[in-house]
Amino acid sequence: MTGTAPAGQPAPTREPAPPAQGNTWVALSAAPLPVDEIARWAKEPPSGAVVLFCGCVRDHSPGRTGVVALEYEAYDGPALRRMEEVADAARRRWPAVGRLAIVHRVGLLQVSDDAVAVAVASPHRDDAFEAARYCIDTVKATVPLWKRERWTGDADSPGGEDWGTCAHDLEAVEP
């Protein structure tokens, strides 16, 4: 869409695979997100709850109707480190959390494609819900990612292509 390559290192085009060890799965992916696998991976014997959140591409945004495509770019290495910081911060706040995944898509996406998946497992549902909510909110606030939108418009408003309208200042992850 942009005609120019993002500035960071290209994210892997293969579908991301679960980590060989450990309870945290953080990744950027240029391939479609394997949300079913992410939810399956999160489940393990001590966990009685798994919350899976998927952020997906919708067909409109403020002032833009007929959104047909999004393109995400990331500052790859620092973005991954920030996502790991978010996971660590969630564990400090909800120590009972077991497996935790944060996987964000980059590249060109169509309407209804998954842009980000967060999965959190814990023995009881309160921690899983709260930690998952914290993770997606904090990812949006702290990870260097940018969204470009293409929209067709309608009879009352023209189409176009531009950066997302809901951009906000990049924040640090609170300890």
Binding site: V116, K140, G164, H168
Partner: peptide
Amino acid sequence: VALLPPVSGG
């Protein structure tokens, strides 16, 4: 040196 405008991930 990286120049990071306001972000829009998620």
